[in-house]
């Protein structure tokens, strides 16, 4: 089968601590995958290894036919692999519209797609409009609320025009309606052809969003399958509820 993302036997250690052990994960183009696990299970480490922020010591990551072991983070972004951070990390000294311009200039334009300054400006506003931040385009990120900051983070990842978007706990700390807003946004994105991996603790959101669920515990994958099937898996129940 032709996978968009194919992670094979991935391993990562921090000194003597094994953060990830023999993780294999394959994602098809257009799929919506939920990645769950208790705190410290290795979800963010896995994302960091996939996106090139961390180097894995074992295994391989293949994305869209490219073996990624030699490429650094910005090269992976240019290939179409975008991510959001668990804690929003906006460019604090740049206005919201400038935050949008960065991936458009350095990723989309660098891919060779012709983007004039006017196109970039228009697309930046369009992205801000999609997440409801167009009225604050000239503001600095410090003027935003927590939910707006998360929307900015998501919009900036979308600006890179990714094939695969990894949303790392984008909904943490949000209210029910805000979670629904972000889920709708992610689903819309998925309908446009973007493959999405959603890392989340809010089970209601993960269950309604995901077509497939992957569970990590203590750096190991313990389940991978249909969401309803996975949540009733005894290993998963044990990991979440204890013996």
């Amino acid at each position: 089968m032709n996978w968009l993302l194919d992670v094979k036997d991935l391993g990562k250690r921090f000194g003597g601590f094994v953060a990830l052990e023999n993780i294999s994960l394959a994602v098809r183009a257009g799929e919506r995958v939920g990645l769950i696990g208790p705190n410290g299970s290795g979800k963010s480490t896995l994302v960091n290894c996939i996106c090139g922020t961390l180097r894995n010591e074992a295994g391989s990551v293949r994305f869209d036919g490219h073996l990624l072991h030699r490429s650094v983070a910005h090269q992976r972004t240019r290939l179409g692999l975008a991510r959001t951070f668990q804690l929003p990390r906006p460019f604090a000294s740049l206005s919201l519209i400038d935050n949008m311009r960065i991936p458009l200039i350095y990723t989309v334009a660098a891919r060779g797609a012709v983007h004039s300054a006017r196109d970039i400006e228009a697309r930046s506003f369009e992205l801000l409009r999609e997440v409801g931040l167009d009225n604050k385009a000239q503001r600095l990120p410090r003027d935003l609320t927590q939910v707006e900051m998360r929307k900015l983070e998501l919009a900036r990842a979308m600006a890179a025009e990714p094939k695969l978007l990894i949303a790392d706990e984008s909904m943490a700390g949000l209210t029910h309606s805000e979670v629904e807003d972000l889920l709708a946004l992610l689903k819309r994105l998925n309908e446009q052809g973007v493959t999405i991996i959603l890392i989340e603790h809010i089970m209601r959101a993960v269950m309604s969003f995901s077509q497939r669920l992957v569970v990590l515990v203590s750096g190991r994958k313990i389940a991978d399958g249909e969401p309803d099937e996975v949540v009733h898996n005894p290993d998963v129940e044990r990991a979440y509820l204890g013996q």
């Binding site: 972004t77 460019f91 350095y106």
Partner: peptide
């Protein structure tokens, strides 16, 4: 623009495609 992103957050800059 790229320099400013490096100053603000290098990891986020890389994630946005900036060759830091």
């Amino acid at each position: 623009y790229g320099f400013a992103t490096i100053r603000d957050d290098e990891q986020a800059a890389e994630a946005s495609g900036v060759p830091t």
